[in-house]
């Protein structure tokens, strides 16, 4: 009796401990993550719609959304280009110090954001190592939108490299060689043969880098300048500023918009991954 139950599909949970692990997981998740996040949601419902829109449509908040989303989009696109080049180089070529280069990609994950922030800000300031030569040709990076984009490129690059790299290493070079033998140029074979295969991974990496850029605080605020006049305040900075002035209504309203954006992006990357898993599973 016991044997058939275990052998058949009628009892998929042979391993003990389902109830215990489910209960513990749900308790941790609810207490530490879901209930606190729901508190933001509940609090924002206590605002009337007029109050809510008044906060969101104030000049500094609207500009912070434009700045944050715009810079994060540009940075994520730059990261897709360089991330693909880096992943390609790391997968397809052998060269000295390759493992070192591969390890360094993860630096933005390991380096605290505040450290990255003050360092980039100093490097790109008018007297900095990069900033001084750039200033001579009239390009200012620190305390401008360029600075925000630079910081977002810095923190976003590992997301793209690490999602593209495994897909690329599983891709058989035979296909490109076939394309090449049929007379396609290397560029053409890349764009027509390799890129379509990389698209789901690239989109996932793009989504992750974009989400990180939109939520980023530590590495951005020092290089951003945070000037309301020049529209270099990011949304995270606005939330923190409102919190410091004890303006909880304002902080939650702005946070709600950013939360919805990040959940949208989370959903987007998850759907891509599930679809990709199904596609490869079917093969």
């Amino acid at each position: 009796m016991k044997f058939t139950a275990a052998k058949g599909k009628s009892n998929p949970r042979v391993i003990p401990g389902f109830g215990l692990t489910l209960g513990t997981t749900l308790a941790f998740l609810s207490l530490l993550i879901l209930i606190p996040l729901a508190s933001v949601l509940v609090y924002s419902f206590s605002l009337t719609p007029t109050e809510f829109w008044e906060i969101l449509l104030s000049e500094s908040v609207v500009w912070s959304f434009v700045t944050t989303i715009g810079c994060a989009l540009i940075a994520a696109l730059i990261n897709c280009v360089f991330g693909t080049i880096l992943a390609w180089t790391l997968v397809r070529y052998d060269f000295p110090f390759k493992r070192l280069l591969d390890g360094l990609i993860e630096l933005p994950f390991a380096l605290p954001t505040a450290v990255a922030g003050i360092t980039l800000s100093k490097l790109f300031s008018d007297q900095g190592f990069f900033g001084a030569p750039l200033a001579r040709i009239g390009i200012r990076v620190s305390y401008t939108h360029l600075g925000i984009i630079t910081a977002m490129v810095f923190i976003g690059i590992p997301f793209v490299v690490r999602t593209v790299q495994p897909v690329l290493s599983k891709l058989d070079p035979q296909f490109e060689e076939a394309a090449y033998c049929l007379g396609a140029s290397p560029a053409r074979s890349f764009f027509r043969v390799v890129l379509p295969e990389l698209r789901p991974a690239l989109l996932t990496g793009f989504g992750l880098a974009l989400a990180r850029g939109i939520g980023e605080y530590g590495s951005v605020i020092y290089i951003a300048g945070n000037s309301a006049k020049e529209h270099t305040q990011v949304s995270s900075y606005i939330i923190m500023q409102k919190l410091n002035y004890l303006d909880y209504e304002g902080a939650t309203a702005v946070a709600l918009v950013i939360l919805i954006l990040s959940f949208g992006l989370l959903l987007f990357t998850n759907i891509i991954q599930i679809r990709q898993a199904r596609r490869t599973g079917m093969r």
Binding site: I33, V40, V42
Partner: peptide, 23 residues
């Protein structure tokens, strides 16, 4: 459930701080 566990990856840390203040 798997997606919910990954939430902190995509939530801005500032919002994490804010949510504990709101609680």
């Amino acid at each position: 459930l798997a997606a919910l566990i990954d939430i902190p990856f995509s939530v801005s840390p500032v919002i994490a701080g804010l949510s504990y203040i709101m609680m």
